[in-house]
Protein backbone atom coordinates (compact mmCIF):
# COMPACT_ATOMS: atom_id res chain seq x y z
CA UNK A 1 0.00 0.00 0.00
CA UNK A 2 1.28 3.47 -0.87
CA UNK A 3 0.04 6.60 0.87
CA UNK A 4 0.84 10.21 0.15
CA UNK A 5 1.57 11.94 3.46
CA UNK A 6 3.44 15.19 4.10
CA UNK A 7 4.78 15.27 0.56
CA UNK A 8 6.26 11.80 1.00
CA UNK A 9 5.31 8.42 -0.37
CA UNK A 10 4.88 5.87 2.38
CA UNK A 11 5.20 2.29 1.19
CA UNK A 12 3.85 0.04 3.91
CA UNK A 13 3.54 -3.71 3.97
CA UNK A 14 1.63 -4.58 7.17
CA UNK A 15 0.86 -7.99 5.69
CA UNK A 16 4.62 -8.69 5.68
CA UNK A 17 5.71 -7.14 8.99
CA UNK A 18 4.54 -4.25 11.23
CA UNK A 19 7.93 -2.57 10.78
CA UNK A 20 7.93 -2.89 7.00
CA UNK A 21 7.37 0.75 6.20
CA UNK A 22 9.52 2.86 3.88
CA UNK A 23 9.16 6.57 3.25
CA UNK A 24 10.44 8.17 0.06
CA UNK A 25 10.52 11.86 -0.65
CA UNK A 26 12.05 14.02 -3.31
CA UNK A 27 14.39 16.73 -2.14
CA UNK A 28 14.91 20.08 -3.77
CA UNK A 29 18.59 20.83 -4.08
CA UNK A 30 21.28 22.86 -5.79
CA UNK A 31 22.23 21.93 -9.28
CA UNK A 32 25.91 21.17 -9.05
CA UNK A 33 28.05 22.65 -11.82
CA UNK A 34 28.07 20.47 -14.92
CA UNK A 35 31.77 20.90 -15.66
CA UNK A 36 33.16 17.39 -15.17
CA UNK A 37 34.68 18.26 -11.81
CA UNK A 38 33.58 15.95 -9.01
CA UNK A 39 31.44 17.54 -6.30
CA UNK A 40 30.38 16.47 -2.83
CA UNK A 41 26.73 15.94 -1.96
CA UNK A 42 24.61 19.09 -2.10
CA UNK A 43 22.06 19.79 0.65
CA UNK A 44 18.36 19.10 0.73
CA UNK A 45 16.31 22.29 0.64
CA UNK A 46 12.95 20.75 1.48
CA UNK A 47 10.60 18.36 -0.20
CA UNK A 48 9.03 18.86 -3.58
CA UNK A 49 5.26 19.10 -3.19
CA UNK A 50 3.47 15.93 -4.28
CA UNK A 51 -0.12 15.58 -5.47
CA UNK A 52 -2.27 12.69 -6.64
CA UNK A 53 -2.66 12.96 -10.44
CA UNK A 54 -6.26 11.82 -10.01
CA UNK A 55 -7.08 15.07 -8.17
CA UNK A 56 -6.29 17.10 -11.28
CA UNK A 57 -7.61 14.81 -13.97
CA UNK A 58 -8.99 17.69 -16.04
CA UNK A 59 -5.66 19.49 -16.20
CA UNK A 60 -3.10 16.75 -16.79
CA UNK A 61 -2.50 14.63 -19.89
CA UNK A 62 -4.64 11.53 -20.28
CA UNK A 63 -1.48 9.41 -20.14
CA UNK A 64 -0.83 10.61 -16.58
CA UNK A 65 -4.25 9.38 -15.51
CA UNK A 66 -3.57 6.09 -17.23
CA UNK A 67 -0.28 5.75 -15.34
CA UNK A 68 -1.83 6.76 -12.02
CA UNK A 69 0.51 7.79 -9.22
CA UNK A 70 1.58 11.26 -8.19
CA UNK A 71 3.14 14.39 -9.66
CA UNK A 72 5.61 17.05 -8.57
CA UNK A 73 6.81 20.35 -10.08
CA UNK A 74 10.35 21.04 -11.31
CA UNK A 75 11.81 23.97 -13.18
CA UNK A 76 13.89 23.28 -16.24
CA UNK A 77 17.43 22.36 -15.14
CA UNK A 78 16.40 22.09 -11.48
CA UNK A 79 18.00 19.19 -9.61
CA UNK A 80 16.63 16.69 -7.11
CA UNK A 81 17.68 13.82 -4.96
CA UNK A 82 15.65 10.96 -3.57
CA UNK A 83 15.55 10.38 0.16
CA UNK A 84 14.87 6.88 1.55
CA UNK A 85 13.88 6.41 5.15
CA UNK A 86 12.50 3.47 7.08
CA UNK A 87 11.60 3.67 10.74
CA UNK A 88 14.13 2.37 13.20
CA UNK A 89 13.00 -0.88 14.82
CA UNK A 90 14.44 -0.44 18.28
CA UNK A 91 13.77 -4.05 19.30
CA UNK A 92 16.00 -5.28 16.51
CA UNK A 93 18.36 -2.31 16.34
CA UNK A 94 17.85 -1.82 12.64
CA UNK A 95 15.59 -0.31 10.03
CA UNK A 96 13.51 -2.71 7.96
CA UNK A 97 15.43 -3.48 4.74
CA UNK A 98 13.97 -2.78 1.33
CA UNK A 99 15.14 -3.23 -2.24
CA UNK A 100 14.19 -0.21 -4.35
CA UNK A 101 14.21 0.05 -8.11
CA UNK A 102 14.40 3.56 -9.50
CA UNK A 103 13.99 4.50 -13.14
CA UNK A 104 13.61 7.77 -15.01
CA UNK A 105 11.59 7.52 -18.19
CA UNK A 106 11.55 3.78 -17.51
CA UNK A 107 15.34 3.69 -17.84
CA UNK A 108 16.93 2.16 -14.78
CA UNK A 109 19.01 4.74 -12.87
CA UNK A 110 21.53 2.11 -11.69
CA UNK A 111 22.02 0.04 -14.85
CA UNK A 112 20.62 2.07 -17.73
CA UNK A 113 18.53 -0.91 -18.76
CA UNK A 114 14.87 -0.85 -19.70
CA UNK A 115 12.32 -1.08 -16.86
CA UNK A 116 11.50 -4.66 -15.97
CA UNK A 117 9.50 -6.28 -13.24
CA UNK A 118 11.34 -7.97 -10.38
CA UNK A 119 14.85 -7.55 -9.06
CA UNK A 120 17.93 -8.56 -10.99
CA UNK A 121 21.58 -9.05 -10.15
CA UNK A 122 22.66 -10.80 -13.27
CA UNK A 123 24.48 -9.34 -15.09
CA UNK A 124 24.10 -6.23 -12.88
CA UNK A 125 22.27 -5.29 -9.72
CA UNK A 126 19.45 -3.04 -10.85
CA UNK A 127 18.26 -1.70 -7.50
CA UNK A 128 19.45 -0.02 -4.33
CA UNK A 129 19.02 -1.25 -0.77
CA UNK A 130 17.67 0.79 2.13
CA UNK A 131 18.82 1.57 4.82
CA UNK A 132 22.32 1.04 3.39
CA UNK A 133 21.57 3.53 0.62
CA UNK A 134 20.10 6.59 2.32
CA UNK A 135 19.91 8.74 -0.81
CA UNK A 136 20.06 8.56 -4.56
CA UNK A 137 21.17 11.74 -6.30
CA UNK A 138 21.58 10.60 -9.86
CA UNK A 139 22.66 8.02 -12.41
CA UNK A 140 25.33 5.49 -11.49
CA UNK A 141 27.97 6.26 -14.12
CA UNK A 142 31.14 5.02 -12.45
CA UNK A 143 32.09 3.32 -9.22
CA UNK A 144 31.60 6.01 -6.57
CA UNK A 145 30.33 8.60 -9.06
CA UNK A 146 26.90 9.60 -10.21
CA UNK A 147 25.55 12.21 -12.58
CA UNK A 148 22.99 14.39 -10.87
CA UNK A 149 19.26 14.14 -11.70
CA UNK A 150 18.39 17.34 -13.58
CA UNK A 151 14.94 18.09 -14.98
CA UNK A 152 14.64 18.77 -18.69
CA UNK A 153 11.64 18.94 -21.00
CA UNK A 154 10.73 15.59 -22.48
CA UNK A 155 11.35 15.65 -26.21
CA UNK A 156 14.31 18.05 -26.19
CA UNK A 157 16.79 15.18 -26.38
CA UNK A 158 18.50 15.64 -23.01
CA UNK A 159 16.78 13.09 -20.77
CA UNK A 160 18.36 9.76 -19.91
CA UNK A 161 15.38 8.05 -21.50
CA UNK A 162 15.96 9.80 -24.82
CA UNK A 163 19.72 9.31 -24.76
CA UNK A 164 19.48 5.59 -23.94
CA UNK A 165 16.39 4.54 -25.92
CA UNK A 166 16.16 7.26 -28.55
CA UNK A 167 12.51 7.82 -27.61
CA UNK A 168 10.64 10.37 -25.50
CA UNK A 169 7.75 8.24 -24.32
CA UNK A 170 7.48 8.07 -20.56
CA UNK A 171 9.24 10.87 -18.67
CA UNK A 172 8.92 11.13 -14.88
CA UNK A 173 10.25 8.72 -12.31
CA UNK A 174 9.27 5.14 -11.64
CA UNK A 175 9.80 3.45 -8.31
CA UNK A 176 9.21 -0.11 -7.15
CA UNK A 177 9.76 -1.23 -3.57
CA UNK A 178 10.32 -4.80 -2.33
CA UNK A 179 10.41 -5.53 1.40
CA UNK A 180 12.64 -8.20 2.89
CA UNK A 181 10.77 -11.43 3.60
CA UNK A 182 9.51 -11.50 7.16
CA UNK A 183 11.22 -14.75 8.14
CA UNK A 184 14.53 -13.54 6.74
CA UNK A 185 14.22 -10.22 8.58
CA UNK A 186 13.49 -11.92 11.89
CA UNK A 187 16.32 -14.38 11.39
CA UNK A 188 18.90 -11.83 10.28
CA UNK A 189 17.93 -9.24 12.88
CA UNK A 190 16.90 -11.05 16.06
CA UNK A 191 15.46 -9.04 18.92
CA UNK A 192 18.19 -7.70 21.15
CA UNK A 193 18.56 -6.57 24.71
CA UNK A 194 17.40 -2.97 24.96
CA UNK A 195 20.19 -2.07 27.33
CA UNK A 196 22.73 -2.94 24.70
CA UNK A 197 21.22 -0.47 22.30
CA UNK A 198 23.16 2.73 22.13
CA UNK A 199 22.09 5.21 19.57
CA UNK A 200 24.30 8.03 18.52
CA UNK A 201 22.55 11.07 17.32
CA UNK A 202 24.23 13.70 15.26
CA UNK A 203 22.07 16.23 13.52
CA UNK A 204 22.93 18.69 10.83
CA UNK A 205 20.10 21.05 10.13
CA UNK A 206 19.97 23.65 7.44
CA UNK A 207 17.98 26.82 7.70
CA UNK A 208 15.40 27.35 4.99
CA UNK A 209 15.80 30.57 4.01
CA UNK A 210 -0.12 30.43 -17.85
CA UNK A 211 -0.47 28.43 -20.29
CA UNK A 212 -3.14 25.78 -20.92
CA UNK A 213 -0.73 22.95 -21.66
CA UNK A 214 1.29 20.66 -19.44
CA UNK A 215 5.00 20.40 -20.07
CA UNK A 216 5.98 16.82 -19.31
CA UNK A 217 9.45 16.68 -17.82
CA UNK A 218 12.03 13.93 -17.59
CA UNK A 219 15.32 13.62 -15.77
CA UNK A 220 18.65 14.08 -17.48
CA UNK A 221 22.27 13.60 -16.39
CA UNK A 222 23.85 16.69 -14.85
CA UNK A 223 27.16 17.27 -13.08
CA UNK A 224 29.36 14.61 -11.49
CA UNK A 225 29.00 13.92 -7.81
CA UNK A 226 30.76 11.59 -5.38
CA UNK A 227 28.16 9.04 -4.29
CA UNK A 228 28.48 5.28 -4.05
CA UNK A 229 25.63 3.01 -5.04
CA UNK A 230 26.02 0.03 -2.74
CA UNK A 231 26.06 -3.64 -3.58
CA UNK A 232 23.18 -5.58 -2.02
CA UNK A 233 24.63 -7.14 1.15
CA UNK A 234 21.78 -9.69 1.31
CA UNK A 235 20.76 -12.65 -0.83
CA UNK A 236 18.52 -12.01 -3.80
CA UNK A 237 16.02 -14.52 -2.39
CA UNK A 238 15.76 -12.43 0.81
CA UNK A 239 13.49 -9.99 -0.99
CA UNK A 240 9.77 -10.66 -1.12
CA UNK A 241 8.64 -10.58 -4.77
CA UNK A 242 5.01 -11.22 -3.82
CA UNK A 243 4.58 -7.96 -1.89
CA UNK A 244 6.03 -5.19 -3.99
CA UNK A 245 4.49 -1.78 -4.62
CA UNK A 246 5.26 0.63 -7.41
CA UNK A 247 4.52 4.24 -8.20
CA UNK A 248 4.79 6.51 -11.24
CA UNK A 249 5.97 9.99 -10.25
CA UNK A 250 5.17 12.47 -13.02
CA UNK A 251 7.19 15.64 -13.31
CA UNK A 252 5.34 18.77 -14.36
CA UNK A 253 7.16 21.90 -15.44
CA UNK A 254 6.94 24.30 -12.48
CA UNK A 255 5.81 27.02 -14.88
CA UNK A 256 2.47 25.24 -15.30
CA UNK A 257 2.10 23.77 -11.80
CA UNK A 258 -0.12 26.65 -10.74
CA UNK A 259 -2.38 26.14 -13.75
CA UNK A 260 -2.75 22.48 -12.83
CA UNK A 261 -3.14 22.65 -9.08
CA UNK A 262 -3.93 26.28 -8.20
CA UNK A 263 -0.90 26.23 -5.91
CA UNK A 264 2.42 27.93 -6.48
CA UNK A 265 5.51 25.73 -6.84
CA UNK A 266 8.51 26.33 -4.57
CA UNK A 267 10.76 29.14 -5.66
CA UNK A 268 13.89 28.33 -7.62
CA UNK A 269 16.72 27.08 -5.38
CA UNK A 270 19.91 29.12 -4.98
CA UNK A 271 22.70 28.47 -7.42
CA UNK A 272 25.66 26.38 -6.29
CA UNK A 273 27.74 29.55 -6.40
CA UNK A 274 25.36 31.55 -4.18
CA UNK A 275 25.09 28.67 -1.72
CA UNK A 276 28.83 28.08 -1.52
CA UNK A 277 29.61 31.78 -1.23
CA UNK A 278 27.28 31.91 1.79
CA UNK A 279 29.47 29.28 3.47
CA UNK A 280 26.67 26.74 3.75
CA UNK A 281 27.58 23.07 4.03
CA UNK A 282 28.01 20.40 1.42
CA UNK A 283 28.21 16.78 2.49
CA UNK A 284 30.30 13.63 2.11
CA UNK A 285 29.00 10.24 3.10
CA UNK A 286 31.38 7.56 4.38
CA UNK A 287 30.42 3.94 4.61
CA UNK A 288 33.29 1.50 4.87
CA UNK A 289 31.01 -1.50 5.44
CA UNK A 290 29.32 -1.62 2.06
CA UNK A 291 30.93 -2.17 -1.32
CA UNK A 292 30.11 0.13 -4.23
CA UNK A 293 28.71 -1.06 -7.54
CA UNK A 294 30.60 -0.42 -10.74
CA UNK A 295 29.03 2.20 -12.95
CA UNK A 296 26.83 1.41 -15.90
CA UNK A 297 28.42 1.67 -19.35
CA UNK A 298 25.10 2.70 -20.83
CA UNK A 299 24.70 5.47 -18.31
CA UNK A 300 28.32 6.65 -18.49
CA UNK A 301 27.95 6.95 -22.27
CA UNK A 302 25.25 9.57 -21.79
CA UNK A 303 26.17 13.19 -22.42
CA UNK A 304 25.54 15.67 -19.66
CA UNK A 305 23.03 18.45 -20.13
CA UNK A 306 25.81 21.05 -20.53
CA UNK A 307 27.74 18.98 -23.06
CA UNK A 308 24.65 18.24 -25.10
CA UNK A 309 23.59 21.88 -24.87
CA UNK A 310 26.91 22.95 -26.42
CA UNK A 311 26.51 20.45 -29.24
CA UNK A 312 22.98 21.67 -29.87
CA UNK A 313 24.07 25.33 -29.59
CA UNK A 314 21.43 25.56 -26.91
CA UNK A 315 21.51 27.13 -23.42
CA UNK A 316 19.68 24.56 -21.31
CA UNK A 317 20.76 25.98 -17.94
CA UNK A 318 21.21 29.55 -16.85
CA UNK A 319 24.16 29.27 -14.45
CA UNK A 320 26.95 26.74 -14.55
CA UNK A 321 29.97 28.37 -12.92
CA UNK A 322 32.34 26.04 -11.08
CA UNK A 323 32.52 26.21 -7.28
CA UNK A 324 35.00 25.07 -4.64
CA UNK A 325 33.03 23.89 -1.62
CA UNK A 326 35.17 24.33 1.47
CA UNK A 327 32.51 23.69 4.11
CA UNK A 328 31.99 19.96 3.75
CA UNK A 329 30.23 18.07 6.55
CA UNK A 330 31.21 14.44 6.90
CA UNK A 331 28.41 11.99 7.59
CA UNK A 332 29.17 8.42 8.66
CA UNK A 333 27.06 5.33 8.14
CA UNK A 334 27.87 3.97 11.61
CA UNK A 335 26.41 6.98 13.40
CA UNK A 336 23.57 7.75 11.12
CA UNK A 337 20.59 7.93 13.43
CA UNK A 338 19.40 11.50 13.40
CA UNK A 339 21.89 12.65 10.77
CA UNK A 340 20.29 14.55 7.96
CA UNK A 341 21.42 16.45 4.94
CA UNK A 342 18.01 17.91 4.30
CA UNK A 343 16.02 20.76 5.67
CA UNK A 344 13.37 19.28 7.94
CA UNK A 345 10.02 20.58 6.81
CA UNK A 346 7.71 17.96 8.23
Amino acid sequence: MIELKNNSLTFSFPEVHPSACLTINFQRTLRIPDDDKEYPLPPGLGRFPLQHVDDYSKHVPASWIEHGGVMLPMYQSEAMWINFHSDYDIDRATSYPFAIKVATGKTNAVTGSEWTRGLNRDPKQDYVVSPEQPWLDGYCVEEGLIRQFVAMPLGAGYTAEEQVTGKAEHGGLQIAVYPMRREIYERRFPKCDREELAMESTCYYLDEKGPTYVADMGLAPGGRMRQEIYRDPYDLTDWDPDHSSRCFVHIANSMVWHQITGEYPPTTPPTAQEYTRAGLPWFEWYDDKNAALKGSEKLSAMKSVATLGKEKKDVPMSENSPVDPDNVVILHSDSRTGQVREFRDE
Partner: peptide, 10 residues
Amino acid sequence: VVREVRDGNW
Protein backbone atom coordinates in the same frame (compact mmCIF):
# COMPACT_ATOMS: atom_id res chain seq x y z
CA VAL B 1 -9.75 6.46 6.17
CA VAL B 2 -6.62 5.75 4.20
CA ARG B 3 -6.23 6.93 0.66
CA GLU B 4 -3.88 4.85 -1.43
CA VAL B 5 -1.84 6.19 -4.29
CA ARG B 6 -3.43 4.58 -7.32
CA ASP B 7 -1.20 2.56 -9.61
CA GLY B 8 -2.19 2.51 -13.27
CA ASN B 9 -1.04 1.00 -16.49
CA TRP B 10 2.58 1.66 -17.43
